[in-house]
Design a protein around this nucleic acid. Structure first.
Lengths: 246, 246
DNA sequence: CGCCATCTTGATGCTATTCAAAAAATGTGG
DNA sequence: CCACATTTTTTGAATAGCATCAAGATGGCG
């Protein structure tokens, strides 16, 4: 765990997807006084555990994470994958206990926003308060969309939707929409989609046979973005999460 | 639609499950100045529609609601059932657009909390601000729990979990935990659980055969609360939504 | 190079869906 | 209040989709 004392949102590559997005330069300056540290985690390391008391929010500056809830019987469910600019920790905001844990999928870095100071600042900076509320409701909305998928769509639709989702999030961040490397394992994908690893493997194969994608391990090349989007169905909703956070 | 000008949280039967829960008498007095009207809806009437601009939160004072998201292809998914004391509208908090609609399942009444005034007051009353944050993260947590169920549990487990959930929410409100009338149709139950109506019907029948419950249309009597809870598995989590909102 | 974890592939079975129809409950007008 | 129409719920039979079980292949890594 590496700690860097100074964080400059204004220089950060992902600031336009992150908390500062809607803030004035002045406000960003104030926010920089709150963002305390930059922490580096390697694949498999956790940012917080289930049951941990909430201390503050984490903004992902690089890498990716999975958020996981665990049932009393030991079952686990990945509730979301998170990418640079996105915020982790809302499930326990303000004096609550995390009911999920967040684990790095690859080497990743995060900024820490201690609750007390964030609260303090958001009371003084309405745009920040607003932005926090926006992120909260965006989280609830994206959760609603996901529930729709889990309740109503087939295995095929779900995998297509995930690929389109990841593609659009990468592309928003300036990376290729059609070629990327998955940071999560097949097991993670299966868990997230409520499927088995075998089903995911077979579906990937099928997509490849149907010339929708090209696959080499975790390297994905989307060949037929339109075809895949049609399978996904709800493809437009994916842009909402980030777009709506403005 | 009936409108009553004055709302007194202090007299309200469900205030201890609602926003005022953690507030001092003084703070409740201030909140009463914000709660503008009491609106009555009949079964099938909607509180807000998908796409409506957010105007404020609704606190349910009696009856029950379903919240529904709609896919571009017309599919719909009920994301939650809501009971007296619970708050509707968080999906669009602060200048966003509802991505779901809320529909009364029976004759119900709600209090309206206009955004501007709620904001204003929550800036002055830290306990209210805190309570709002708590409700937000409780919503996210309960969503996480629900995802776990949708992703990992069988049809049988899901129905048992729903019955236990409803039972515990009724019992918290002073009603019987073992005998109640479902306000939602079989179709709603099936939609919520990501199943078909036929499957739900068959499961209800099976539960009856196994002497877990007694059913007469929408009247449910839980005979073996322990057995049903064991099927539900995650039964303890149901208390969290309300309990954690303190 | 060889071990271990991850991923793929095949055969089989079960769960829940789909299609179809009847039964029960609810609503409606005379 | 009853006969009829409509909606909701139940039940049955057949099917499909995904899971489970069981090997086997591949790639990463010491």
């Amino acid at each position: 765990m590496t700690v860097t004392s100074y964080v400059r949102c204004s220089n950060c590559a992902v600031s336009k997807f992150c908390l500062p997005h809607t803030l004035s330069n002045d406000d960003i300056g104030q926010l920089e006084g709150v963002v305390q540290q930059k922490r580096v985690l390697h694949a498999g390391e956790t940012l917080y555990h289930t049951g941990d008391h909430f201390e503050g929010l984490f903004a992902i500056s690089s890498g990716s994470f999975k958020s996981v809830v665990i049932a009393t019987n030991g079952d686990s469910q990945i509730t979301e994958f998170s990418f640079p600019g996105e915020i982790l920790g809302f499930d326990a905001y303000h004096g609550k206990t995390h009911n999920s844990f967040a684990e790095a999928l690859e080497t990743s870095s995060v900024c820490f926003l201690p609750q007390a100071q964030l609260d303090n600042l958001s009371q003084k900076v309405p745009a920040l308060q607003q932005q926090l509320y926006n992120l909260f409701s965006a989280e609830i909305q994206s959760n609603n969309e996901f529930l729709l998928m889990m309740g109503k769509r087939s295995a095929e639709d779900r995998l297509a939707a995930l690929l389109i989702n990841i593609s659009s999030r990468y592309s928003q961040r300036g990376y290729s929409a059609t070629h990327f490397r998955l940071s999560m394992s097949r097991t993670d994908i299966a868990n997230y989609l409520g499927l088995t690893i075998e089903t995911v493997s077979r579906l990937i194969r099928r997509f490849q046979k149907e010339s929708l994608i090209e696959v080499a391990q975790r390297d994905i090349t989307i060949i037929d973005l339109v075809g895949l989007s049609e399978l996904a169905g709800t493809h437009c909703s994916y842009d909402q999460k980030v777009a709506s956070a403005e």
